[in-house]
Amino acid sequence: MKSSICLRRMKVNQKGIIRIVGGQGEMGRRIRDMGLVPGVDIQVVGRAPLNDPVALRLRDFTLTLRNNEADYIFVETDDENP
């Protein structure tokens, strides 16, 4: 069974495919402009020293966002017990 979890809960080095991107207005637009849209492969590549923000690898570049923003993004991971 494939599971869909919130990006905030993903671990470093975990991979997945974005399924839902919520968020509207300025923040939603900013997230989408950077290429975070459903169907995209991502990998969490790191977390800042205080666990926030999180760094993602997608579309051949690295992006950072805060956990508050990660809450709008749900990811389907291969991992069964994340």
Binding site: E26, M27, I31, M34, L63, T64, R66, E69
Partner: peptide, 11 residues
């Protein structure tokens, strides 16, 4: 409230 932190980490 705070604004989003969506930023590129360039190589």
């Amino acid at each position: 409230p705070a604004t989003p932190f969506v930023m590129e980490l360039p190589p």
